[in-house]
Simulated scan of single mutants.
Amino acid sequence: MLLALALSSVCFFFVGHAQQPSGNASFPALFAFGDSILDTGNNNFLLSASKCNFFPYGRNFPGGIPTGRFGNGRVFSDIITDGLGIKTLLPAFRDPNLSNDELPTGVCFASGGSGFDRTTYGFQNVIGVPDQVNDFQNYVGRLNNAVGSEEANAIISNAVFLISSGNNDIAISFPQRGLLYGGIGGYSDQLVTWTNDFIKSLYNMGARKFAVMGTLPLGCLPAQAAFLRSCSVPVNLLADTFNQKLSANLDNLGTTFPGAKFAYVDMYSSLLGVINNPLASGFIDTTDGCVLMPIPCLDANTFVFWDYAHPTEKSYLTIAPPLVEELKEKLA
């Protein structure tokens, strides 16, 4: 059932133009962890086939260049960083040309194709979400050298830690390993446990503001919907089961991690709302990927999806404003 999603993982869930970092009083920085929804180019520097640093990716990015972002323009991590008033583009930490000037306002550690389950990321040679903590630890050392430990601690404790959870694990690993955990109920419980362990690792390093994303409506991705011409209800049920458990878990983490704040980022309902009422936002096609047409679409702004698994930049821009406002309310 999810085989099509697994086969599309090469581009499933580099670095932008130079900009003047700004930050703001409430959120001086943003750090992104997870998969290709957030990856801004880390995979470019890996010996992996899970890359999208080629045309027509980046067609609508400033300059029209393929940067390694999994879409036609900016990705969700860029847009949330911009919406919070920090900076317009979030650079990839693995970029060897990353400037020290970028460090105080945040970087991206996410890796396309990644997940919490080693089965998800092991065969692709991408950076597993648990292993992204190691990159963050290296970042902290570099930040300390750049601004001093006192300022570095202040940045980290006030920064937003944006985490994408579950997309590739459910799409790739659940069909292979789900029965070992007793089905989607047991597997989603394990994903929540892995997410908590990851949060604990970051918390122990000073993180206090967590924005944790649920999965997209996986049954509506073109890998599924293009064949059915509509969303796959069973696949969406798998995603929704996990999302509900993740959201409920975050509501109770305040006592586990004193002083921390948590916000659930509802990617599922937000994007599903656009798919169910596309004309309200100017979309025409909700089931095909722009670059999957016999001739790539001329206007990606009329497509909800860019390829088999990734929304277009306009889709992210459409769903982001209320999500940004919720983050400001819950994490400030």
Rank of each mutant, 00 (worst) to 15 (best):
V291K: 06
L228F: 09
G113P: 01
R59Q: 14
T195A: 14
L250N: 05
S99K: 11
V291P: 01
Y57H: 04
G23K: 06
C108T: 02
T286C: 12
N97Q: 12
I163S: 00
G106K: 06
N276Q: 01
L237D: 11
T318C: 04
P234S: 05
N243M: 07
L246A: 03
L253G: 01
L180Q: 10
G219D: 10
N204Y: 03
L298D: 05
M267C: 03
N144A: 06
Q137E: 15
I86D: 00
G85K: 06
A225G: 02
D197F: 11
A49Q: 13
A223P: 10
V75T: 13
L317F: 07
V265S: 02
L103Q: 00
S36M: 14
G41I: 01
D131Y: 15
N44W: 12
F198N: 02
S50L: 12
N53G: 08
A320W: 15
A6S: 14
L5G: 03
P96E: 00
V15K: 05
K245V: 07
T215Y: 04
G214C: 09
I284E: 06
L246K: 01
L317N: 04
F116K: 03
L2C: 10
M1D: 06
V304P: 02
Y308R: 10
D169P: 15
V140M: 05
Y57A: 12
C231T: 06
F262G: 00
I155W: 07
D189N: 10
S50D: 09
A263Q: 14
E325G: 06
K51Q: 12
S232G: 15
V192Y: 02
R69V: 06
T119Y: 14
R177E: 12
A4I: 08
N53F: 13
F303T: 08
K209I: 12
F262R: 00
S232N: 03
K330Y: 07
A29F: 11
L89G: 08
S269V: 10
N196E: 07
G178T: 10
V133Q: 05
A248Q: 14
N158S: 15
F70M: 15
A49R: 15
A4G: 05
F33G: 03
V304Y: 03
N24K: 01
P294F: 06
N138V: 11
L327T: 00
A32P: 11
E313R: 00
A32H: 04
G273E: 02
S232M: 04
F54L: 14
V235T: 03
